[in-house]
Structure formats: C-alpha cells, structure tokens
Design a protein around this nucleic acid. Structure first.
Length: 201
DNA sequence: CAATGCAGGTCCCTTATGCT
DNA sequence: AGCATAAGGGACCTGCATTG
C-alpha cells in the first residue's frame, strides 16, 4: 500500500465518514469509542480515515459502541430508505455516551433513517446517588420527560426539580446535566432535536 | 506567552493468512 | 517452507485549547 495514495473504495470512505459522524454526534472521542469497541485508537482512526478495511467483527463492535446496528453503517450506501421502526419494551440499543462513565445507562430507542440525523430519543436510567455527573453541550433542543424517581437537573445557572410526568425543554448549547439524584431509581426520556444546519455536518 | 493536557493522526512493528 | 499482503496494536508526533 502506498502512503497517501487514494486507492480506497467508496465503501471504505463511506464507512469512515459514517462512523466519524456518529461518534461526533454522540460527543465521544476516538479513545472512548475504541475502548468500548475493544480496538485500539490507531485502528479506529485508520478506519475513519479509510486507511484500512476493518473486518466485520470489528465493524460490528464499533456499531454497537455507537448504538447502531451493523447494517445501519451500510444503510445509506446503496440501500433504499423506508419503513417504520419498532422498539419493544426493554429493547433499544444500549450505547456509550459521556454519562456512561458515571454509571448511567442510555438506550437509543430509534435512529434516523434519512441522510441527516434530525433527532435522537434516549431512555436514560440512573441508580447510584453518589455519582458525579458530566456536563453536556450540544447543538439543538433537548426535551426531557420524567418517568420514575425525582431528579434535580441543571441548565445554565438554574436547576429544576423533576417529578414523574414533568417535562423540561431547553437549548442544548447551554451547559446542562443532572445535578442531584433526589429519589432513585430514576428513569426519563430524553430527546435531542438537532438543527438542520448542524445535522448536515 | 509558555507550559500542559488532550484528541486525533501517522508510523512501524507483529501476527495471521493466502499463495507459490 | 518461504514470501507477500493486510489487519491490528501501540508508541510517538502534531495541533489545539486551556491555564497560570
């Protein structure tokens, strides 16, 4: 293989772009995804830059770390779109996000099938009251609907006490995240709605 | 402005596999 | 058996943001 030679197939370039896009939209680093997938950072970098052809097992592990199915990585390459998505109770892909290190569980309940990611619905579970919480910042709007427990949630300079049935909607650009777990176990639905402009990048 | 830390990319090595 | 090729890992390098 000649360094710098662009002899990679369109599929390799497509896969690399898709993986990088998914990773960045989850706010994850190469180190985080590679650790979750059980591969090295160098390997993931080479896959994203189409410098190698990863095996199916490696691609499958990356897909799982990003919360999508293996077929989802290839979905827009040459397969027509269509169809509704059904996720049964207890289903959904468990994914790694910033808060995963804190012991939180994120289940991705659906994924966008079109060329642009417009939204991401997560079912989030928190159980350990002694945890420290990450601060999130992302483009677009976030919608939270409490299902179980009581949670104090921070958005910028304000905090809000959320009980089951409460909803909170805010701009994702302002630093936000769980402040205190008042009554566990806590479970809430979180939907990220991305702006058209950032969803395309 | 220099020091520091982190994220991402590149290079080189090892290993596995296929071919002659 | 020996060689060629490619996957994969890990160390090192670079760029950028942050901090004092």
């Amino acid at each position: 293989m000649q360094p710098g030679e662009d002899n990679k197939t369109p599929l390799e370039r497509y896969l690399g772009n898709t993986i990088r896009e998914l990773r960045q939209r989850h706010g994850l680093t190469i180190a985080q995804v590679s650790a979750q997938a059980g591969i090295s950072r160098g390997m993931l970098s080479k896959i994203e830059n189409a410098q190698t052809s990863a095996g199916l097992e490696v691609l499958n592990r990356i897909a799982q770390a990003l919360g999508v199915s293996l077929s989802m990585l290839f979905r827009n390459f040459d397969v027509p779109q269509g169809g509704a998505q059904l996720v049964k109770k207890g289903g959904g892909m468990e994914v790694v996000r910033k808060g995963t290190k804190s012991g939180h569980t994120y289940h991705l309940l659906a994924y966008d099938q079109g060329p642009r990611k417009l939204f991401e619905p997560f079912l989030i579970t928190m159980e350990d009251e002694a945890e420290r919480f990450p601060v999130f910042e992302h483009p677009g709007t976030e919608f939270i609907h409490m299902l179980k427990g009581v949670l104090e949630y921070r958005h910028g300079q304000h905090t809000y006490i959320l009980h089951p049935g409460d909803t909170l909607t805010f701009q994702g650009e302002i630093p936000h995240g769980p402040e205190r777990l008042i009554k566990t176990p806590i479970q809430f639905l979180s939907i990220f709605v991305y702006p058209q402009s950032s969803a395309a990048d």
